[in-house]
Design a protein around this nucleic acid. Structure first.
Lengths: 203, 203
DNA sequence: CTCTGTGAACATTTTCACAGCT
DNA sequence: AGCTGTGAAAATGTTCACAGAG
């Protein structure tokens, strides 16, 4: 979040910023921002603030986005399509090296300049491109099998868009994005507003 | 999460479950699950567990997904496309009533059985369908303007996929989904593994 | 005099552990 | 006997408030 905020400031031509400004841009409290950044080291200047470019580089280095990470996407339905075309990945240091789908009728398609390949090619793609991050955009029923195969092929981080909890071995990282849960959270607050109008936060 | 886990159990024919089982399905600790559910009331039976259907209904009622929520999606690029077609919304009580895009060349298109309409129609659509939830899938630069217009039209909850922090009035709920941040978190853990192999969690 | 970096205070979340219901 | 519901404890996260650097 801070990295993105810094990139935004840099694009606006800002060279220096205070914790207050950066916190506002990122949408957090300035004390929290300073505490968070303090864990990385002392990259600010007292009485002045932070140098945007310098801090940006330090954060990028810390979180490991100074070099490209090759990524494979499995499941080229609507969501896989969108992910393959999502420019935010490329601009943030991720390079989609392959799109895989179990459905052979999709293997003709070219999406985002890559042709959709067979899921059978997973192992060779992973070893050839040294891939350690996989994205699952399949239906829920297929997700666990895809994850197992990814892990067997040597992938150690999985971003899961399927609405299912994945069981993976120790040492494999999984993050889940569930679009409908986000909407349900909004609906919950909507309902509360309707029932008891008054105190409500905007987070 | 618990609701989804319960739906999964119900589909498998399970009629009763313990906090241990449900927690495992949802991927959390059983004590946490019991504490969470206790805030809703005492819907379990000591010595037995929870009735799947009963608990499912109680949670659905609590979070407000017993009736349909009309939703509008603004920005029908790749992501908007995917969201419009995402079956998870419909099955979880959300009904996409309109797809809007500022680009007139897209107004011919029919996506997911709905035709893409002009962003100018926002106000009438919101009032005609009593919409209180809006989804922003536009580029970052357009997001704030779209949000402002949504709020003016009467929308009080926004799901934002654009990588920008939205400023909204008190009382308007915003949730943000940033796909590249999730990948960055995985990359961070990958880098840590490479540097200092050993203790690593699989969350 | 301004703004960072940080110990200490405060707040929230998670887990433990067990009383008590069925 | 088995499992929920829940106080109390532990862990974690956030904010305050100020010493001290520039």
């Amino acid at each position: 979040m801070y990295l993105r905020a810094l990139i935004g400031l840099a694009e606006d031509g800002t060279t220096t910023c205070s914790s207050e400004e950066l916190a506002a841009t990122a949408g957090v409290n300035s004390a929290k921002l300073r505490k968070d950044l303090s864990y990385l080291g002392s990259y600010g200047t007292r009485g002045v603030g932070y140098d945007v470019e310098y801090l940006r580089y330090q954060i990028a280095r810390e979180i490991g986005v100074t070099h490209d990470w090759p990524v494979v996407i499995v499941g080229i339905g609507n969501l896989g399509h969108a992910l393959a075309n999502y420019s935010g990945f490329r601009s943030r240091g991720f390079r989609v090296v392959a799109l895989l789908d179990a459905d052979p009728t999709r293997h003709d398609e070219v999406v985002a300049g890559l042709d959709v390949r067979s899921f059978e090619d997973l192992e060779s793609i992973v070893s050839d491109n040294d891939v350690s991050i996989g994205v699952i955009a399949t239906p829920a029923v297929a997700a666990q099998a895809v994850a197992d195969r990814m892990v067997a092929a040597g992938i150690t981080s999985i971003l899961n868009f399927a609405p299912s909890v994945l069981a993976v071995p120790e040492g494999v990282g999984v993050r889940k994005v569930d679009l409908s849960i986000e909407l349900q959270i909004l609906a919950y607050h909507e309902q509360r507003k309707a029932v008891a109008p008054g105190s409500e936060d905007a987070s």
